Deep mutational scan, measured.
Amino acid sequence: KKRTSIEVSVKGALESHFLKCPKPSAQEITSLADSLQLEKEVVRVWFCNRRQKEKR
């Protein structure tokens, strides 16, 4: 599967949402994915990776 490159504006939106809620529910992920026109899986993986980055 190809890597999904996420645009800067979209990254900003994800980042601000992450600061409010680092662990969104499935429903939040779905609505966020719909509003940003991304697949749910892409958003879910982005949050997983972002939480891991926070640990480092």
Rank of each mutant, 00 (worst) to 15 (best):
K1G: 07
K1H: 04
K1C: 12
K1P: 03
K1F: 09
K1M: 07
K1A: 07
K1W: 03
K1L: 04
K1E: 08
K2M: 11
K2A: 08
K2T: 07
K2P: 04
K2Q: 11
K2D: 13
K2V: 09
K2S: 08
R3M: 13
R3Q: 08
R3G: 14
R3N: 15
R3W: 06
T4W: 04
T4E: 15
T4P: 10
T4R: 05
T4G: 08
T4N: 12
T4I: 14
T4Y: 07
S5G: 13
S5P: 13
S5D: 08
S5L: 12
S5Q: 14
S5H: 14
S5V: 15
S5M: 12
S5N: 13
S5E: 15
S5K: 15
S5A: 12
I6N: 10
I6S: 11
I6A: 11
I6T: 10
E7W: 07
E7P: 15
E7A: 11
E7T: 15
E7K: 10
E7R: 12
E7I: 10
E7G: 14
E7N: 15
V8H: 15
V8F: 14
V8S: 15
V8G: 14
V8K: 12
S9G: 14
S9F: 05
S9D: 15
S9E: 14
S9L: 09
S9T: 14
V10C: 06
V10K: 13
V10T: 14
V10A: 12
K11D: 15
K11T: 12
K11N: 09
K11Y: 07
K11M: 11
K11Q: 14
K11G: 09
K11I: 14
K11F: 09
G12C: 13
G12V: 15
G12I: 15
G12R: 11
G12K: 11
A13L: 11
A13Y: 09
A13R: 14
A13N: 07
A13M: 13
A13E: 11
A13I: 08
L14G: 01
L14T: 00
L14R: 02
L14W: 01
E15T: 02
E15S: 00
E15M: 03
E15R: 00
E15Q: 04
E15G: 01
E15V: 02
E15L: 03
S16I: 05
S16Y: 05
S16L: 08
S16M: 11
S16R: 11
S16N: 06
S16Q: 14
H17M: 11
H17F: 15
H17T: 10
H17L: 06
H17Y: 15
H17V: 06
H17C: 06
F18W: 06
F18L: 02
F18Y: 10
F18K: 01
F18G: 00
F18H: 01
L19F: 04
L19M: 13
L19H: 10
L19Q: 13
L19W: 06
L19V: 11
L19Y: 07
K20T: 08
K20M: 06
K20Q: 04
K20P: 00
C21Q: 12
C21V: 05
C21M: 05
C21L: 03
C21A: 06
C21D: 11
C21K: 04
C21T: 09
C21E: 11
C21N: 08
P22K: 05
P22A: 11
P22N: 05
P22M: 05
P22Y: 03
P22T: 06
K23C: 13
K23D: 14
K23A: 09
K23V: 11
P24F: 00
P24M: 03
P24R: 01
P24G: 03
P24I: 01
S25Q: 06
S25C: 07
S25P: 03
S25I: 02
S25A: 06
A26F: 06
A26I: 11
A26W: 10
A26Q: 13
A26L: 08
A26P: 07
A26R: 09
Q27I: 09
Q27H: 14
Q27N: 13
Q27S: 10
Q27D: 10
Q27P: 07
Q27L: 08
Q27E: 08
E28Y: 03
E28P: 02
E28N: 04
E28I: 04
E28C: 06
I29P: 02
I29L: 10
I29H: 02
I29M: 10
T30L: 10
T30C: 09
T30I: 07
T30Q: 14
T30P: 01
T30D: 14
S31T: 13
S31M: 13
S31V: 12
S31F: 09
S31A: 11
L32F: 05
L32G: 02
L32N: 00
L32W: 01
L32S: 01
L32K: 01
L32I: 08
L32A: 00
A33Y: 00
A33Q: 00
A33E: 04
A33F: 03
A33P: 02
D34R: 15
D34V: 11
D34M: 13
D34G: 10
D34H: 15
D34L: 15
D34K: 15
D34Y: 15
D34S: 11
S35I: 11
S35F: 07
S35L: 11
S35W: 10
L36P: 03
L36F: 06
L36W: 04
L36K: 01
L36Y: 09
L36R: 01
L36I: 03
L36D: 02
L36H: 04
Q37F: 08
Q37V: 05
Q37G: 13
Q37R: 09
Q37D: 08
Q37E: 08
Q37W: 05
L38N: 00
L38D: 00
L38A: 03
L38P: 00
L38Y: 02
E39T: 08
E39S: 11
E39Q: 15
E39I: 00
K40M: 12
K40V: 13
K40E: 14
K40R: 13
K40T: 09
E41R: 05
E41A: 07
E41S: 07
E41F: 03
E41V: 03
E41W: 04
E41I: 01
E41Q: 07
E41N: 11
E41K: 04
E41G: 05
V42P: 01
V42R: 05
V43A: 03
V43N: 01
V43G: 01
R44D: 13
R44W: 05
R44A: 12
R44N: 09
R44H: 09
R44V: 05
R44E: 13
R44M: 07
V45S: 15
V45T: 12
V45I: 13
V45R: 06
V45Q: 14
V45G: 11
V45P: 02
W46G: 01
W46E: 00
W46C: 02
W46H: 01
W46D: 06
W46R: 02
W46Q: 02
W46P: 00
F47S: 01
F47I: 03
F47L: 03
F47R: 00
F47E: 03
F47D: 02
F47P: 00
C48S: 12
C48H: 10
C48D: 11
C48R: 07
C48L: 11
C48N: 08
N49R: 09
N49W: 08
N49I: 07
N49L: 09
N49G: 07
R50G: 03
R50Y: 02
R50L: 00
R50A: 05
R51I: 05
R51K: 04
R51D: 05
Q52L: 09
Q52G: 10
Q52R: 10
Q52D: 13
Q52N: 12
Q52S: 09
Q52C: 09
K53W: 05
K53N: 04
K53H: 08
K53L: 08
K53C: 13
K53Y: 04
K53R: 04
K53E: 03
E54A: 07
E54Q: 08
E54H: 05
E54F: 03
E54S: 04
E54V: 04
E54I: 03
E54W: 03
E54Y: 06
K55G: 12
K55N: 11
K55I: 12
R56Y: 05
R56N: 13
R56W: 07
R56E: 12
R56S: 08
